[in-house]
Write a protein that binds this DNA or RNA. Structure first.
Lengths: 157, 157
DNA sequence: GCTCCCATACTCGGATAATAACTGTCCGAGTATGGAAGG
DNA sequence: CCTTCCATACTCGGACAGTTATTATCCGAGTATGGGAGC
């Protein structure tokens, strides 16, 4: 899985602390000493998915487009990685004896169904966790993080 | 995820029908019109994992090394893909403000934990399904498959 | 006829290229800013 | 002094290379087979 997911997750969390002010890709990347342009690429993906909104020009940047209650980990993963399942079924049964080009074996193959079941368990777990939940947990476990992050974005950089 | 997983899953199922006789990589690949040498590579991985046992020379090939009750989908996935999590945590917090090289953020980072939770749900689902279960389901849904497969391996090729 | 031996053909196994995906980078299109000119 | 305009600098956005992982292939090491020679 692409490492961009990790960047996106942390950036969304950071943006939730910053609040309404737009933050540039440069600042979000510098926070973790990551390449700016590539970080920008991930933020673009989040924007296309409707998780962030972007503003051009001076005082521009990215900000959250929705309430953090309404941003699940699955949303972010899908925005970066795409909608495809972890296990991709190439339908080898199609080329086996008695295989047909007109059957969608992703629906009939038992193994495909079994793997899909696991995929759904994964997605379900991700869909049940929102950025709001994560933020709450972080603030409970590491109370200083919020202010430290806020200061770093507003003062430095 | 590597397509080799799909090949491995179907091959294990097919081997469970064949029984005790060794089947060559050539035959297992030809069954789905797949490249022989690359199929061989996947079967090697399964052998290293202790799922299959291999025999060289004439009348050689691969056969199941364990009871199908004792082969889970997770075993096969791990044999092909390795033990790494779906989401790999590169510990970006390490390079953030206040980050330390001596902390393992895979254990402290809340986001990492959340992603790991989903990974575990996925693995748990895979671990609960054995090849025996799959075989039972296939034989119920498609009663002719077992004999058709057996005939194809014993007579043809 | 039976046993032993050997050449043979067949199989797996790991080392080696071709391809695709991910990672990283660059420059152009568009925009809010901030100052200068004019009223 | 206030308003309007414009040049400017800054931002995102998509198009372009470099690098790693996946896909595919090849040839050598080892082994059970099957026939032939010898007893």
């Amino acid at each position: 899985m692409s490492e961009g997911v990790e960047w996106a997750l942390h950036s969304c969390l950071n943006l939730s602390w910053v609040g309404d002010e737009a933050v540039t890709a440069r600042k979000l990347a510098a926070f973790y000493q990551l390449p700016t342009a590539y970080m920008n690429k991930q933020l673009q993906a989040l924007t296309r998915a409707g998780i962030l909104s972007s503003t051009s020009g001076p005082r521009g940047g990215f900000r959250l487009a929705r309430t953090i209650d309404d941003i699940t980990l699955l949303d972010i993963v899908v925005a970066i990685e795409g909608r495809e399942d972890i296990f991709r079924c190439d339908q080898v049964l199609r080329h086996g004896p008695g295989g047909s080009d007109e059957v969608d074996y992703r629906h009939t193959c038992v193994l495909s169904g079994a793997m899909r079941k696991a995929d759904l368990a994964w997605r379900s777990s991700l869909a049940q966790q929102t950025i709001a939940d994560i933020r709450t947990d972080v603030e409970k476990a590491y109370p200083h993080t919020r202010d430290a992050t806020l200061n770093h974005f507003l003062n430095a950089g």
